[in-house]
């Protein structure tokens, strides 16, 4: 399967439609229901404990078209958060104690109001995370974004699916590895991942195919050793993330005839300890157009908040969002397999 140059949506592919994806993943195929399996945790159903993260998707536009992207992001995607919706997010933040804002996309830096928004978030004294794909920091016109993020003490989290070019470029595109290394060097030169600076730079590993991630700690040791030895680059922590069977990764699973065995693998690896710490318990996800979701995956499947919780950021009400019942589906097995998976890595 070759790297695309545009999103599935641009090609009018069936799986670009979230309803089509849900039809496939919620087909039973003899697989137990996630809600039933979740009861093994001792809890009746999945609900939010508290909101520690407001994860805001600034838009689906991206300079990369990664094979596994759950957003189906790409250069052709026009969905971008407006300044007005950003202001609604800031109003919601100001009325709450949510300590961390996590900006994602697409490439969040491609939103024309990215810097203004990041600046306003810091004025509210919130911890800021930017999920940067690294290559955007090497693109024309974005050279000062790295310094901007350092000046704003933004934590940077970036995908690097392997410490060598082979796997990385297969998943993310030709030349991505070298550009990522160049961006990492720039981040390191500004103090990122250097002791005493407080500038945090974390990497994300996700499998380049239909298999589960390696153990986070041992893989982090391999990454640190190899990246330091071969490229003299440094990072703080490695987060391992399982590929979710939705969007482009679902397309890959079906095309490579791996879908059934991958789902079976996820279900067989269900880990109640991992399920107890899934990120939706601590997250509020906001889409580019201001709608609210339990996580970025539910957002891409158009599984809007329900059960009496507000559905749009303009109706933000923290009390109504706490203890909300989380919208689940068979895709949730992706977060509960093995050591678990979240935007902050393993959960067990």
């Amino acid at each position: 399967m070759e790297i695309r140059h545009k999103s599935m949506k641009a090609f009018g592919e069936t799986l670009a439609d979230s309803k089509e994806q849900l039809k496939i993943i919620n087909k039973s195929n003899g697989i137990p229901l996630f809600d039933e399996k979740y009861k093994l945790t001792g809890e009746e159903y999945l609900k939010t404990d508290k909101i520690e993260f407001m994860q805001i998707n600034l838009g689906k536009m991206c300079n990369q078209v990664c094979k596994h992207c759950h957003v189906d992001a790409g250069p052709d995607r026009k969905e971008i958060m407006t300044k007005e919706t950003m202001q609604l997010c800031l109003d919601a933040l100001a009325s709450s104690d949510i300590p961390t804002v996590d900006l994602t996309g697409g490439a969040p830096e491609l939103n024309p109001n990215f810097k203004w928004f990041a600046d306003e978030i810091k004025k509210l004294n919130r911890h800021l995370i930017v999920r940067s794909n690294l290559t955007i920091l090497e693109a024309n016109g974005f050279d000062n974004h790295t310094k901007f993020m350092a000046d704003h003490n933004a934590e940077i989290i970036s995908s690097l699916p392997y410490y060598k070019a082979s796997f990385t470029d297969k998943q993310r595109g030709e030349g991505v590895f070298q550009k990522s290394i160049a961006a990492m060097k720039k981040l390191n030169s500004l103090g990122y991942a250097k002791e005493g600076t407080g500038l945090i730079f974390n990497l994300v590993y996700n499998p380049v195919g239909a298999f589960l991630p390696a153990a986070q700690e041992s893989l982090e040791r391999d990454y640190k050793r190899e990246l330091q030895k071969n490229f003299d680059v440094y990072f703080n922590n490695l987060y391992t993330i399982t590929n979710m069977p939705i969007s482009r990764f679902l397309d890959y699973l079906i095309a490579s005839n791996n879908y059934d065995s991958y789902m079976e693998k996820l279900v067989n690896a269900f880990n109640p300890a991992a399920a107890k710490n899934v990120m939706c318990k601590f997250t509020l996800s906001v889409s580019w157009d201001g709608y609210l979701y339990d996580c970025d995956f539910n957002q891409m499947l158009d599984l809007n908040l329900n059960h009496g919780a507000p559905r749009h950021i303009k109706d933000f009400n923290e009390d109504k969002l706490l203890n909300r019942k989380i919208i689940t589906g068979q895709h949730c097995f992706g977060c509960t397999a093995g050591a678990g998976s979240s935007c902050g890595g393993a959960t067990a």
Partner: peptide
């Protein structure tokens, strides 16, 4: 693969 090895 699940232990972090690659094709090489």
């Amino acid at each position: 693969l699940e232990k972090g090895a690659d094709l090489d």
